[in-house]
Nucleic acid binder design. Structure first.
Lengths: 339, 339
DNA sequence: GGCTGAACCGTAAGCGTTTTCTTGCAGGTG
DNA sequence: CACCTGCAAGAAAACGCTTACGGTTCAGCC
């Protein structure tokens, strides 16, 4: 407007103090007289002055920004995490830089390199990416404060659920209902798959073993964590000679697809084949899907808090916060008819 | 690692040129000899040097960042927009700063002020917020390049669909099926509501009027664009003495809720009450919901492109890009039985 | 009265780029 | 050969803040 931006010097001059004092006053630092602070604040307000983020960053070395690295931004689970994270960061006045990187088992090239992030953020959060990926290890090991969600890495704070237990609960529920031929809709078999998969598989087989059964590979199909994939997987399972009477899907979205497949085959979830998922997706209730709910937004919040704590105090709170899950029984699971 | 960060001066010294040349070489600016450019690039690579974003910002006044202001980050529509936007911006190497601001009819305090954004971003995108809000007008009028999605403001580029037409199509579809008692599940009646609502209502009534009918207010209920709200709205409609045989829901998520309400009342969507929505939500197919699909991710991409164009050329491409919608007929709409 | 220490505040040296002038130089032109 | 043109490259002035360090003031105390 006035041709030149107003700077801290303008404020200093008008308030009759040095720029150092303005800086301290405006940032709430100590060693500033209350009266002086007020005067500076008033002048700044009057001039509609705001601290130049660029200059502040350069001088202080801090960016007030953190990066979120997530495979997907629109999928329910990740979008919900994001909204939890956003609420916390915004409350703390921290900026959120978003990096959607796509399916890591397809391509890892969009995972930002250390060079991309250096000097751009004060810390980062990584959401449910395979910790074993070199690109992910680079991120986690670049020396910045990091907080993870839905994944773990040694000596890095994270928030997650007990995936083994979640899968065990779901499977045990089917067992309790008397099911014997229990199918599994897993993610995929790529070596760089989400680690959570392994845990859920472990919980699944553990439950079976606990009941004196073993997992028949013929009762397993890959659903790639999508609705369409779940539908294909269920279709495969239905075409097996040994047809499951109940199916554990590793995610609600795959369970949705499975329900769809049942419908296409003229079958009804629950009555004909029981289905249980994991997530607590918004739509689950709508579809009457039994599921193991996890507190997704809360996971995001907790992890974001951990990162903020780390930024504030400088000490790394090495701990994995495990949040509880809960089995919500609905109409998609009923006692085995052979019972 | 080495105690001190390596700077452009280090590169300059080793490459035997001035910092000015390094700057030009690394950014691909002209007036640099090819051989010199190569040498600089090699040295930079060797030293693992990256331009300091903070210093670059301060000196150039550009941030390479754009802000996304969105009411919600986890709702399907917004999350999908976001993913379209993210893909475009990332392709252009532009950083994406996310601001989730919550429901504007509840509170507008989280809408970032001009002061919050000044010096922090080069441009911004606003997603489907009521253009009439003072906070939104401040954002749009702050002089930065802006691009809108799902909303319009005079002389600001935007991408959207023809909401009037979309609603008209949906309603006309019901009319064509012979329905006469057609209900409406709208958003809400708050004065600061999403403008898209008005358009969809207009399309709805236009279709009715075109068939020589008028909209009976008794056949309308508010669903607040949520599943739960849609369920409540449908419940209200079902309890009316004049019960609709078909319902137009202004969004798929409200339509989902409506379907749920029908189920709870022992009714079946399609057979008992026809339902049509708008969006093309992932889950629509699953629920066999007839809907008017809009290209959501594409809207995000188009609008992001418009913003990038504006940033590159400096000229504001004043145009509202209207993307096409398509009626997808599924099982939730069938001919009126009184037909 | 001088000494001490705390509280407040100013000076000025960075922070690491970008960019505007200049300058040097090579090659073409009249 | 003088002169102009145009490209490559350098010198140095911003850009606007933060902060280490030092100075001043003043109350409290021996």
């Amino acid at each position: 407007m006035t041709g030149r931006n107003i700077t801290i010097r303008d404020v200093a001059k008008i308030a009759g103090v040095s720029t150092a004092t303005v800086s301290r006053a405006l940032r709430g630092l100590p060693h500033v007289d209350a009266a002086t602070r007020d005067r500076v604040a008033r002048v700044a307000e009057e001039l509609d002055y705001v601290i130049s983020p660029s200059a502040s960053r350069l001088a202080s070395g801090r960016t007030g920004t953190i990066a979120i690295v997530t495979p997907y931004v629109s999928r329910w689970f990740f979008a919900t995490l994001l909204s939890g994270i956003d609420s916390v960061l915004q409350g703390a006045g921290v900026d959120l830089l978003l990096f959607g990187v796509g399916d890591p088992s397809v391509s890892t090239e969009r995972i930002p390199s250390e060079r991309r992030l250096r000097g751009r953020v004060d810390g980062l959060m990584v959401l449910a990416l395979p910790a074993a990926l070199p690109e992910v290890q680079n991120l986690v090991g670049m020396g910045l404060p990091v907080s993870l969600v839905g994944m773990t890495a040694s000596s890095v704070p994270s928030a997650c659920i007990d995936d083994v237990e979640a899968a065990r609960m779901a499977t045990q529920h089917l067992l309790n209902l008397g099911h014997v031929d229990i199918g599994l809709i897993a993610g995929d078999v790529s070596p760089t798959a989400f680690t959570m998969q392994d845990d859920r598989r472990r919980g699944f087989t553990a439950a079976l073993n606990g009941a004196g059964m073993t997992h028949d590979p013929v009762l397993e199909a890959s659903g790639y964590f999508t609705v369409a994939g779940g539908e294909r997987a269920m279709t495969v399972l239905l075409s097996q000679p040994r047809r499951p009477t109940a199916v554990f899907a590793m995610s609600d979205e795959m369970a949705f697809g499975a329900i769809r497949a049942l419908q296409r085959h003229g079958l009804r979830p629950g009555r004909d084949v029981s289905i249980v998922g994991v997530d607590g997706h918004d739509i689950s209730e709508l579809l009457d899907l039994t599921t193991v709910e996890q507190p997704v937004a809360e996971l995001g919040r907790v992890s974001a808090e951990a990162l903020l704590e780390q930024l504030r105090t400088g000490v790394k709170p090495f701990e994995t916060k495990v949040l509880p899950t809960e089995l919500v029984v609905r109409g998609s699971t009923v006692p085995s008819s052979t019972h």
